[in-house]
Design a protein around this nucleic acid. Sequence first.
DNA 1: CAGTGGTCTAGACCACATA
DNA 2: ATGTGGTCTAGACCACTGT
Lengths: 239, 239
Amino acid sequence: MATTNKYMNIFQELSEEIKNGVFEPNSLLPSEHELCERFNTSRETIRKALTLLSQNGFIQKMQGKGSLVLDISKMTFPVTGLVSFKEIQQSLGRDIQTTVHKLELIEAEDWLSKQLECPEHALTWEVVRARTIQGERVILDKDWLLQTTVPSLTEEICADSIYAYLEGQLGLNISYAKKEITVEPATDEDRALLDLDGYSHIVLVKNFVHLEDTSIFQYTESRHRLDKFKFVDFARRRK
Amino acid sequence: MATTNKYMNIFQELSEEIKNGVFEPNSLLPSEHELCERFNTSRETIRKALTLLSQNGFIQKMQGKGSLVLDISKMTFPVTGLVSFKEIQQSLGRDIQTTVHKLELIEAEDWLSKQLECPEHALTWEVVRARTIQGERVILDKDWLLQTTVPSLTEEICADSIYAYLEGQLGLNISYAKKEITVEPATDEDRALLDLDGYSHIVLVKNFVHLEDTSIFQYTESRHRLDKFKFVDFARRRK
DNA sequence: CAGTGGTCTAGACCACATA
DNA sequence: ATGTGGTCTAGACCACTGT
């Protein structure tokens, strides 16, 4: 669990303590000075950890007063940030299955090479997966990954979590992503592979995933049945 | 324009220069050392400004190499963070009108006092506004604001931007918000006040807005016609 | 007043990239 | 080997909050 970073460790340790109720919601965290002593470190380092806590909705800093612990039980769940389908569902303790409908190496067509910002005809993994939650097929995930960064891919990996494989096994460093959420008419494919229950539209979440060298290596379309879709976002006001 | 903060000023100055093309996309920013000299400041201060640029999608920092300028023209627009309807539309140069359908001081009912985390029967402003974009009424905004924090409210303010009034005139410090995006069946009110064009559902964006003392003072439901809804999110991976 | 967080500094050492 | 960013330090001064 120990990453190399001091402030990252402090952030994780304090966030665990907040989650576990060691620090009560609506109470104050120990002062920065006290935290310096507890973690035997300098104040700027403590402040980096506290900044992370603040950005992730754990605390609210108040000048002259201290750091107030927020009630994270009211937060439903921060889907913000880069979190994969599997991580989210696991965090909710949901019972899910994944059906892999397609796993092929294709040549990128015109539209796809534009999405991936890659040369046309670049070799690309195309993955189509349906997600079953509590007996209903409600999400269709369509992934495209450049073979230059992901040489091989198996059905086992797709049935589990592609993210876990990329970060864990391949050691890829995912750095940021852009998401677009819209509502679109359902396609024949949607109707065939999902239990649409009469809905004529789906929620489409497009996801452009970038590596640390800023190249896009994955483009994902996540197609959700309307009534099963929920997106939660925590955001701080930047002045 | 000059806020009090050194790193905030540097962030704004550099972000302007990136927007204006002074620094080309896919080129490197001057090194932190050079920026220290240019702004006559220490490295940690420069790094705070660069961290802000990174978090807002302007640059990608790469150890050993430098800070790469990202192509913000590909970003559509960061709707992430706390941005009001008016700010977003203005940034897109859209032609919009607002119709105020309701502006009343009411007593919070059961469900509302739960949303606002306030005592039942607390006095609350209820505001209902329809947004017309390019001739079509496509968004219905329903706002509830606690009178304890917003003593008075006029139709003129509502027709313009409530946010601008709250932050500019009242000097309220908005600090963070939680958003929830779902799809819900349209109500009779939706059908009456919007040009729903046959759609049976709307996209519902719930917004819980908190002040710096962490109290909720505003709860908003933004109801969008399906085909006119778009949400864009930029997120960095936190390890 | 004392205690809190907010900003800023000058310098140190490390890890990574490039030539 | 040099230059880049990543982390950490010890201390300074300021602004705000409470008593």
